[in-house]
């Protein structure tokens, strides 16, 4: 059966590290980086990449609109 897989791209330089996307993700894909971006914020990045379903919840709540979401059907 085909499975839906997702992927997100976070613009790490535009991320302000507010962590609102972490709470919005149903599969806990996103983590905060220990290093900082040019603005001095710990930015969000997709850690558990395999878990992403491409639901776009993180992108919808991101106040700065830095997340782009992709989704594709994958043959299991």
């Amino acid at each position: 059966m085909a499975k839906v897989k997702g992927a997100i791209v976070i613009d790490k330089e535009a991320c302000k590290g507010c962590e609102v996307c972490l709470a919005a993700c149903p599969t806990n894909v996103i983590s905060m980086a220990s290093e900082v971006n040019g603005k001095g914020y710990n930015f969000a990045y997709p850690e558990l990449k395999e878990e992403c379903t491409g639901c776009a919840n993180c992108a919808i709540v991101c106040p700065d609109g830095v997340i782009t979401v992709y989704r594709a059907k994958v043959e299991a």
């Binding site: 897989k5 997702g6 992927a7 791209v9 535009a14 997709p46 990449k49 395999e50 992403c52 491409g54 776009a56 992108a59 919808i60 700065d64 609109g65 830095v66 997340i67 782009t68 979401v69 992709y70 989704r71 594709a72 994958v74």
Partner: peptide
């Protein structure tokens, strides 16, 4: 299919609208 392969224009689901500027 791995994470990076999904990142293609045809799979795009959501991106910031062009009616928002790119200003921080």
């Amino acid at each position: 299919m791995v994470f990076e392969d999904i990142i293609k224009t045809e799979n795009l689901v959501y991106k910031k609208t062009s009616f928002m500027t790119d200003n921080t």
